[in-house]
Design a protein around this nucleic acid. Sequence first.
DNA 1: CGTTTGCTTGACAGCATTCAACGTTGGTGG
DNA 2: CCACCAACGTTGAATGCTGTCAAGCAAACG
Lengths: 260, 260
Amino acid sequence: MAQIKTYPRVMPTSECVDAALPLSALRVACSNCGLRDLCLPVGFSHAELVRLDGLVARRIRVYKGASLFRTGEPFEGLYAVRSGFFKTRTTSEDGREHVTGFQMAGELLGLDGLAADAHICDAVALEDSQVCVIPYAQLESVSHEFMTLQRQFHRIMGREIVRDHRVMALLGGMRSEERLATFLLNLADRLEARGFSPSSLVLRMTREEIGTYLGLKLETVSRCFSKFQSEGMLNVRQRQIQIVDRVALQALVAGASFKV
Amino acid sequence: MAQIKTYPRVMPTSECVDAALPLSALRVACSNCGLRDLCLPVGFSHAELVRLDGLVARRIRVYKGASLFRTGEPFEGLYAVRSGFFKTRTTSEDGREHVTGFQMAGELLGLDGLAADAHICDAVALEDSQVCVIPYAQLESVSHEFMTLQRQFHRIMGREIVRDHRVMALLGGMRSEERLATFLLNLADRLEARGFSPSSLVLRMTREEIGTYLGLKLETVSRCFSKFQSEGMLNVRQRQIQIVDRVALQALVAGASFKV
DNA sequence: CGTTTGCTTGACAGCATTCAACGTTGGTGG
DNA sequence: CCACCAACGTTGAATGCTGTCAAGCAAACG
């Protein structure tokens, strides 16, 4: 797993990840964050960005395998992924796990807690990660006097709903290969938006996690990977995925994907 | 697929066409609406309710089969179902339909439009219906000076996300019988909250619509109904459903449903 | 009253799951 | 440094659930 590190990080700025420097001492501000064009303040002017700086209370680390929050815990605020990778999951009464999403840098976690002031899923780090904490009280009061933020926040919640609807359509109507192809293309797009190669990616999750996200068993996921490779669409070596024939992958998804 | 109907689009203009009593003459106000304990203003005091009265611009009728809004149309606001029954659906490139939800009195439609200022699904009336129109601009400005409303609106969006996550879990992890049982119990609960019998219900949707909502084919839905009947859990006569053994239905779902 | 639409049921096929065995990788401790 | 272990991934064979195709029936509609 050592070679994951060789991938270029969209690396923010001065403020990061130096073990010598406690995070609490770092300047935590949207206005000088490298992710500002992906995260909450997309499209904000510099003046607007500065107004956001009071919003982010602090930044916290979540080590691989640890939970940022868990089902039932009180909702306190949202979390913006600063670096790393998360999954959100729910667990059924009989112990089956269902992954509801994967989140990477610039994406928000915790919206599920708005409904009942308590989280209804677990957010688990799939690698050592950092998140910015946006206390809900803060968000409420700042967006109260700052219309652009309010609008933006609504937009982000809307995006979450749209995303969920797409996943529902995927789970309800696609066959295994279409599901996996959709998943890979979506992942590639999001990575590309963050400055990574869109054709060469390293999965942060197991086959089983992909499976429960896509409504498939891990063996089915594995078989699909193998099939895509044998058909020359992918190169698969464990979690290292190379998209060889993007067009073919897209063609697989074309009919099943949804109109705008 | 040729028979996809071009249903008449509802005209959101001079609301209604009832000669005897134009809706415009009715008092359109949350403060004296019988649904206020189910709809947007759940839990509001009377004083707060009155502040909402400026929010609802007008009420419009949508006849059975007609669309309240369609994919691609500009987002203008939210709609609260006043009476009647809706489905929201998306359509894939190759013409397959996927139902993303069913909405009854007191529930909100249109949240999908927040993301991109355009709707990404169709809202179709399954019976003659009425909706209250809540222009987004209005909602924005009122909630700006009225914290309780802002909080409530966030809560409602959160609920939508939670609902979607439950559906995702259903689609990803349950077998056909569990899906249908979950669906029926959910429907019964919502009807009960509206003062209807929780054990005797009339479906407003076809087997096919249930199917695309649950990720099943209509034949499978039909077979499940028959099986539930033969096992004494339901009485099924077309769309008239009687829940005979609620406990058995719940037991079917128990293991698969999700922890709080 | 005939036509259309929706619902039910049967027979069969196919895709994904299940069960099982084996291979690979990375970490741990001797 | 190597051996071993645990977690993860791959593959095969068989089962089974759901989909597909088809026919017939019931209800709604004009």
